[in-house]
Every structure is written in structure tokens, then in C-alpha cells.
Nucleic acid binder design. Structure first.
Lengths: 131, 131
DNA sequence: TTCTGTGCAAATCTTTTGCATGGCA
DNA sequence: TGCCATGCAAAAGATTTGCACAGAA
């Protein structure tokens, strides 16, 4: 809770209950789409508008507090937490974070030096493989 | 040209000039968005409808002939050509293909065995870095 | 000839914008 | 108090659908 406030304090953005609620939701879920954020926040915060979610997601993205994770299914958002890998299920859209191993970083550094190593691997997750 | 026809012949989809034009465009550009495909095909094929592009892109995707490359900028499509890496510029949306090195494949295989190794790295391309 | 594909227009999402009001600093 | 943020409604964009006609097999 305190953490999320700090994120906003260190930015140009004002602290509002709506923004805290969005960040809280992303923290809880790890990754969530606009629609998911909206649906969940509406329960606690019935007056919130979808336009507010859009505006804030964009503002938070702009400010570097959150980032977008693209998938063929639906784009999601996560709180920025440095380099890591994403495994994205191409079927259900679920996203799983993973630590980059030294080997991965090295093999990619060879090819693309001085790049932020955000890596995305698309595949079918265990759950979807069973179906 | 012969190749593209064969792709359709081996699928459930009928061969039409529109579909061939879409595939030809993707082959030429490597990667293109719906809008780009539409704008370019319209020059040779003025009567084509945007809805036809959408329907066909979806049908071709469904048939596994093309695949979608997601980016924060704009989604693009490419002819399916087996495992490879994509370097995606998070600023201009340009996509550059690269061969996966054995090291890359190995380090990812360790983490996600038996997955198609389509890897996406987001960064800023040389062109955009200069600005 | 049959059945799928095309093109148009309308319908449906999705996302953005403008503006009056409310609320943080 | 001064401004930025919110919420509403409308606008703008993106994508899908329905249907009559055209064209591939």
C-alpha cells in the first residue's frame, strides 16, 4: 500500500484513490487487461468510469510506472519491475513471469547489445495443453 | 508466386486474387499491419474492401498460413516460416527477424521444454535511437 | 451448379476527447 | 485557491457481421 503511493509521489502524477486502486489491482493480479481492471475496481468503486481507467493506464504507462504486455489475445498491464521474461499463452492469454537466466541474457546480449532484455515467449500453457 | 498459391492449395481456403495479393504483400514487406496491407493492395486492386482484408487475415491466421506479431505500436502479420526471433522497436513498431542461436534455444529450452521457440525482444531500433 | 468469397453498409466494440464538476496539494 | 483528475456523453477508430451478388472449383 505504502509502496504504491510512493510510485505516484515520485512521478508527476497526483495521488488519487482511482490511481491507487488501479495499481493495487495490478499488484494483486500481476497482469490485467483494461477490462479486468475496470470490472474489478467497479465492485469497490462503483462510480469509476471506463474513461478514467484508460486515461490513467496511459498516464501511468507514460510515467513509466506500469508497462504494457502485448498478446494476440488481449493486451495487459503490469507494474514495472525491471528486466524479466514473460511466457504468454497464445490461447488463453495468461502471462507468467520468469527470471532471465545468465545464459539467456548472455545469448541475447551477443545479438542485441545494450538493450533492455524484456523477452517474450509465446506458447501454450500447461492448463490449455490439457484441453 | 507459385509458392503462395501452394500455401492456399494445401489449406481449406480457396485461391482468390485478393488472398494472393495479401500474401504477396506480406511476402514483400516481411511484416505488415492491416492498414498497410489495405493501402498497398488498393493501389493495384481499387475495389478491394477493408472488410475483405480483415476476413482474410483472420482466415489465413486460422489456417496457420500467417501469424500475428504483437507490438505496443500496431499488430502486424507475417507469413509463417518456423521458429525465429523478432526484434520489435517499441517506438516505431518496426520488426526485424533474427535467427535463434543454439545458445538461445538451449537456454530457453531449459526453462520451457517442448515449446515453439518464438521469441520477442522489445527495444529501440537503431533508427529511433538516433532521434 | 454449388458453395465459398467479396464488397458494401450497418452494427458493434474499443479507445479517445471535450467539458463541467470535484478533489488533491 | 489553483490545477489536475474524474465522470459523463459524444466522437472517433477499429473490427465484425449480414446480405446480395460474383466468382472459384
Amino acid at each position: 500500500m505504502k509502496d504504491l503511493k510512493t510510485l505516484l509521489e515520485n512521478s508527476e502524477l497526483k495521488i488519487t484513490p482511482q490511481r491507487l486502486a488501479i495499481l493495487k489491482e495490478l499488484e494483486k493480479k500481476g497482469h490485467a487487461s483494461i477490462e479486468e481492471v475496470y470490472e474489478n475496481i467497479k465492485e469497490i468503486f462503483p462510480s469509476i468510469s471506463l474513461a478514467t481507467i484508460y486515461k490513467n493506464i496511459n498516464a501511468l504507462k507514460e510515467a513509466g510506472i506500469i508497462c504494457e504486455v502485448c498478446s494476440p489475445y488481449k493486451n495487459k498491464y503490469e507494474i514495472n519491475k525491471g528486466e524479466h521474461g514473460h511466457f504468454i499463452c497464445a490461447k488463453c492469454g495468461d502471462i507468467e513471469d520468469f527470471e532471465l537466466t545468465d545464459d539467456m541474457i548472455k545469448s541475447i546480449e551477443d545479438k542485441y547489445p545494450n538493450t533492455k532484455k524484456d523477452i517474450y515467449i509465446y506458447g501454450i500453457c500447461k492448463k490449455c495443453k490439457q484441453d
